[in-house]
């Protein structure tokens, strides 16, 4: 579903990704962990077609990036630590706006269903700027799944959430992943990554330094592995 070979991304003289290799099968949930500055967000932005690779080959759902970006974008849902929602529009208006951008037929039905799914039906007419951070993040997930994408990219979706909101988000992430969607999530939190994902990839200094399946490693050994490959 996602195939990345020899990916290099530089900003001026600084190399952020240095020949990164990455492969994800359909329906897999992969967590990408790593220290600050390892290149997690940059990598996710390239997969989302928001940033151009300097060199290397990136294929998402069989389409090449950046040449076939529009074909990739229709198959992609992205949630970042920012909600990508308009504060002066209501929850419902935000979803209707994105429905039109994605060319959804019968958006009323879909918007209603998504608001139900993220538990915000009762708050649909409230302005997004009045929402708590947790509610905004749930609506952000609703926005990302509005067009029922095959692939979901989550860039540190738990940032700024309290424990209750984070737990609610975890439930929602599990629900989404259970629907045979391919998920790539970046996280700082090893426990959360191990809890949610089937595979944990550790990104360090612009390359995947280690990749382990959750079934192949004791979660208690994960911090040790993380420290050994990231040298922290």
């Amino acid at each position: 579903m996602i195939d990345v070979r020899g990916l290099v991304k530089t900003f001026g003289l600084k190399s952020v990704l240095r020949g990164l290799e990455f492969h994800v099968e359909r329906g897999e949930f992969v967590a990408l962990v790593g220290p600050n500055g390892a290149g997690k967000t940059t990598f996710l932005r390239i997969l989302a077609s928001l940033s151009r690779p300097s060199t290397g080959e990136v294929r998402v759902a069989g389409y090449r990036l950046p040449a076939q970006a529009a074909a990739v974008r229709i198959r992609l849902g992205v949630v970042s630590h920012q909600p990508l929602l308009y504060g002066d529009l209501t929850a419902e208006e935000n979803l209707f706006f994105y429905s039109r951008m994605y060319g959804l037929i019968n958006p009323e039905r879909r918007v209603r269903a998504v608001l139900d799914m993220v538990g915000l039906q009762a708050r649909r007419r409230d302005l997004v700027r009045q929402f708590s951070r947790g509610m905004q993040q749930r609506l952000a997930i609703g926005r990302a799944i509005l067009h029922d994408p095959e692939i979901l990219l989550f860039d540190e979706p738990h940032t700024g959430l309290d424990q209750e909101a984070a737990a609610m988000l975890d439930t929602l992430l599990r629900d989404v992943a259970a629907r045979d969607r391919t998920v790539v999530m970046t996280s700082h939190n090893l426990d959360r990554a191990a809890d949610l994902a089937q595979r944990i990839d550790i990104l360090s200094k612009g390359v995947i330094a280690a990749s382990v399946k959750r079934t192949e490693i004791d979660p208690l050994d994960l911090p040790k592995l993380y420290r050994s490959v990231t040298h922290v």
């Binding site: 529009a70 269903a113 067009h147």
Partner: peptide, 28 residues
């Protein structure tokens, strides 16, 4: 839990690459 699962996940998309999709995006 606290969320609901969508059973009817049928989503129909219009072509977004044509002139109609282009104008619809501008209008949106």
């Amino acid at each position: 839990g606290t969320t609901k699962v969508l059973e009817d996940n049928l989503v129909t998309l219009r072509r977004t690459s044509g002139l109609g999709g282009y104008l619809r995006a501008i209008g949106a």
